[in-house]
Amino acid sequence: MSEHLNVIKEHGNTNCFSESNFNRLLVSMKDRIVPEGSHLFWEGDVSDKLFYIKRGRIKLTKSTDEGKELILYMYQTGDMVGQADPFFSTKHSFNAEVLEESEIGVIEHKDLEILICQHCEFAIDFMKWMGIHHRLTQTKFRDLMLYGKPGALCSTLIRLGNTYGEEQGDNILINKKITHTDLSNMIGATRESVNRMLSDLRKKDAVEYDSGMIVIKDLAMLQEICHCEFCPNEICRI
């Protein structure tokens, strides 16, 4: 594996694959470029592929009957996207929107089945990937449901810090511009309530803004509000 691809894998959700098994995955992919604003798939499409992000960012969303968008996952370079139960001819439950021009490796389920049948160690690594996916989903629902909107917001800020964070002394800069609308869509709240909660956190000196980007100043306070369970970073991510 090239050094470049090795770095990508280590920063994505595919770091559970050994080098040899990751190479098998790479060989089975068909590359394509997808433009910003397009969709990898829509809710209701047949789930017959997985998608590996070689370059770019993808968000998975769910729309309510009232037309409100809930952002469930934000994927980036090194992540594999798709249904975690790929062998039951299911349909996608979410929309996958491309946030910037991306290079995607497309893996057909039939090719994945061959790899799993031929290489038992690949099957074990794939099960690890599925386990990470399920744990990520479980912890996100815990954060959204158990500790109210302030807990959900603080958890989301921590996850953003783990995903996009850059250390600046004792602070963590979330090096992506995240709007209040984005945050409200991530936690199922109104933009106005997110504004109020962020204002409260700024008054407590837990967060601040730097050139439109959020800076976490008191990580311990955010962890206390959301009753953080200190999950590993591959789980505690946006």
Rank of each mutant, 00 (worst) to 15 (best):
K9V: 09
K54R: 12
Y147Q: 02
D65N: 12
M80K: 03
C120T: 12
M197G: 04
L173K: 14
S63Q: 13
F141L: 15
N15W: 00
F17P: 01
F122A: 09
I114S: 07
I71H: 01
G37C: 10
R55V: 02
V7D: 08
I132S: 02
S93K: 15
E19K: 11
M29L: 15
L26N: 08
F122K: 06
L146Q: 09
Q76E: 05
E43I: 04
V7S: 09
A220N: 14
D31V: 06
M29F: 08
D200P: 00
H119Q: 09
M221I: 10
L222N: 05
I104Y: 02
S28Y: 04
I174L: 11
C228R: 13
A189F: 03
L173H: 13
F51V: 02
A96V: 08
R32C: 08
M197R: 06
T179L: 13
G67F: 00
H39T: 09
G188A: 11
G131I: 05
M130N: 12
N195S: 15
E113C: 07
H11E: 13
L198E: 05
I107Y: 03
K110T: 13
I187T: 14
L99C: 15
D111G: 09
N162Q: 09
T139N: 06
G67C: 09
T163I: 03
G188W: 01
K177P: 00
E66G: 03
C236Q: 07
